[in-house]
Design a protein around this nucleic acid. Structure first.
Lengths: 151, 151
DNA sequence: GGTGAAATACATCGAGC
DNA sequence: GCTCGATGTATTTCACC
């Protein structure tokens, strides 16, 4: 799908704040309400707008700690991989989970009440599948953390 | 603020999908529409619901590459820190940016069209402030990537 | 692909239980 | 906290340019 400047402005606006009326969005991108609504519908149907969600404040929910866990493993067979991927993804405290290139095999981002809670998460991780090398460091400061993609 | 089970169910629902009417949310959490609307308002005013946003599909926007950049530095003075933090945070391709504990000082998550585009991002990074050691690896697979916090 | 006006659906507020 | 009903507002769908 081809996007023009109006589409991109619209995407930038809704990924910043989707609590806006079509009229407000229309004013922002310099169109009237009807074509703005049409574009929104088109972008959603094309799958470019995946969904709308509420973002919560981790502090207010007593989730003060963000941890990054790096994992190396010697097991690379399909069985192990499936077991590990599914087990880790099922953990609600795991918010991101990537298989990486390079010498680190996996990167896991955890959202926890405090750094002490890592002990329990670590036990859960090693119980899922055998891991050669697990290392963690916690975020002292989240300088930037956005869901906005560069469009 | 104290949250009961109805509040938590509501938070779980809106963080998954906020494109629902108050009536649908009410049915999900087992209350009727009026108290559900009241709870939503209370949670937003308390700052627990920070905002509502649209999540876009990176693939559909030709952003196929996720990269993680780790940075070590020997500069730790206030001036350097401010310059580095502000400069990096301003880059639109930087979606997450943390100051870490341990031997890695900073972790940067980049959202790029392809891995080749890292060359340009790297040049931008080293132009912001002097860095001792920069290393990158790209995500071969995003096994999990959610904005849902564990509540 | 854009405009303006009408119909519909939703959120919001109040009163009574 | 629930129900019902009324009001205001936003979304949606027309015909039309």
């Amino acid at each position: 799908m081809v996007l023009d400047e109006h589409d991109r402005r619209l995407l930038r606006a809704v990924q910043k704040d989707s609590d806006r009326t079509v009229q407000e969005l229309a004013d922002l991108i310099g169109l009237s309400a009807t074509p703005t609504a049409r574009r929104l519908k088109r972008l959603a149907e094309a799958g470019i707008i995946r969904k709308h969600v509420a973002l919560l404040d981790p502090e207010a929910l007593d989730l003060q700690a963000t941890l990054f866990v790096t994992v190396r493993t010697s097991h690379h067979d399909a069985d192990w991989l499936k077991r590990f991927a599914e087990g880790v993804a099922r953990m609600p405290e795991v918010v991101e989970f990537y298989r990486l290139s390079g010498d680190i095999d996996y990167l896991i981002k955890l959202c926890l009440p405090d750094v002490r809670a890592y002990d329990e998460a670590y036990k859960k991780l090693i119980a899922i599948a055998p891991l050669s090398d697990v290392s963690a460091s916690f975020a002292m400061e989240a300088i930037k953390n956005t869901t906005e993609l560069p469009v």
